[in-house]
Simulated scan of single mutants.
Amino acid sequence: MRVLPVGILMAAGRGRRFDPLGQRNKLLQPLAQAGGDPVAVASARKLLAVLPTVIAVVPPDDGGVGALLAAAGCEVTVCPDADSGMAASLVHALRHSLPYDPAAWLVALGDMPYVDPSTLQALADALAAGAPIAAPVMGGRRGNPVGFGRVHLEALLALSGDQGARQLLQTCPVSEVEVTDPGIFRDIDILTDL
Rank of each mutant, 00 (worst) to 15 (best):
L48G: 08
V65Y: 05
A40C: 15
R24N: 09
E75G: 05
P52A: 13
T53C: 07
V65D: 04
G35N: 07
V65L: 08
G22A: 10
G35H: 05
I55C: 09
G64C: 09
I55P: 00
A32H: 09
D37A: 15
P30Y: 11
A40H: 11
A56G: 01
Q29P: 02
P52Q: 07
L31S: 00
G63C: 09
L51Y: 00
A67Y: 03
V41K: 05
A67D: 05
G22S: 04
A49D: 11
P60N: 08
A72K: 09
K46N: 14
D62K: 09
T77Q: 13
D62R: 14
L69D: 08
D19R: 12
G63M: 10
Q29T: 10
A49T: 10
T77C: 06
V41L: 12
Q33N: 07
G36M: 10
P52K: 03
R17I: 13
A56E: 03
F18C: 01
C74W: 01
P52M: 12
L48F: 06
G22Y: 08
N25H: 14
L48I: 02
L68N: 04
A70W: 07
G64K: 10
S43L: 06
V50L: 04
K26S: 15
V54F: 12
L27H: 05
A56N: 03
T77Y: 04
V41M: 09
Q29A: 15
P60T: 13
V58N: 02
P52S: 12
T53Q: 12
A40Y: 09
S43V: 03
P52R: 10
T53V: 15
V54C: 14
A49N: 11
I55T: 03
G73Y: 01
K46Y: 03
A70G: 06
V50Y: 00
T77H: 13
V50H: 02
R17P: 00
E75M: 09
L31G: 00
A42D: 04
K46I: 08
D37Q: 15
I55E: 03
Q23R: 14
D19M: 11
Q33F: 10
S43H: 02
A71E: 15
V39N: 01
A56W: 07
D19Q: 10
Q29L: 14
A34Q: 07
Q23V: 15
A49M: 08
R24F: 13
A71N: 05
C74D: 04
K26T: 07
G66S: 11
E75P: 00
V65P: 01
A71H: 04
L28F: 07
D37C: 12
G36L: 12
D61W: 10
V57T: 04
V54R: 08
P38S: 15
V54A: 14
E75H: 12
A44H: 06
P30N: 05
D37N: 11
G63H: 08
L51D: 00
V65K: 06
A71K: 09
P60Y: 14
V54K: 11
A40E: 02
R17V: 06
L31R: 01
A72T: 04
A67R: 14
G63W: 11
A34P: 00
G63A: 03
V50T: 02
V57Q: 03
G66Y: 10
T53D: 14
Q29W: 13
T77N: 01
P59N: 05
A40L: 09
A34M: 08
V41D: 02
P52V: 04
C74A: 15
